[in-house]
């Protein structure tokens, strides 16, 4: 998209009040976004947000307690456009 992935804040967020650590989302996603932590209270974390495919929300469908949420698509699209513009103008004359 012409913008480094690290600048796009798109990834799932786990609501730990709802999550029951069924691990369905992790089983589903092939991109190694989640990581399991056997010995911790939060047995699943979003360890690699940058691996998440921008605008994908597929894992949310596998989550029965509806514990996964994502940023607003419109806002992220606007941000990407803005970052592109800044990239083009070189960002040096401010």
């Amino acid at each position: 998209m012409g913008v480094p992935r690290s600048k796009i804040p798109w990834c799932p967020e786990i609501d730990y009040d709802k999550c029951d650590f069924c691990m369905e989302c992790d089983k589903f996603c092939p991109h190694r976004v989640f990581e399991r932590r056997e010995n911790e209270e939060r047995k699943l974390v979003v360890a690699h947000p940058e691996n998440c495919v921008v605008f994908c929300r597929a894992c949310a469908k596998t989550c029965a307690p509806d514990a996964l949420s994502f940023p607003d698509k419109k806002e992220i699209t606007a941000l990407i456009k803005r970052l592109r513009e800044e990239g083009k103008s070189g960002g040096g004359d401010g």
Binding site: F28, F55, C56, R57, A58, K61, K73, K74, I76, T77
Partner: peptide, 19 residues
């Protein structure tokens, strides 16, 4: 919207939105 959902598909394996 751009990158919004335009319907969805379901296969024997999974469900997916058309982005």
């Amino acid at each position: 919207d751009q990158f919004g959902e335009a319907g969805s598909l379901e296969s024997t394996k999974t469900a997916l939105d058309i982005i």
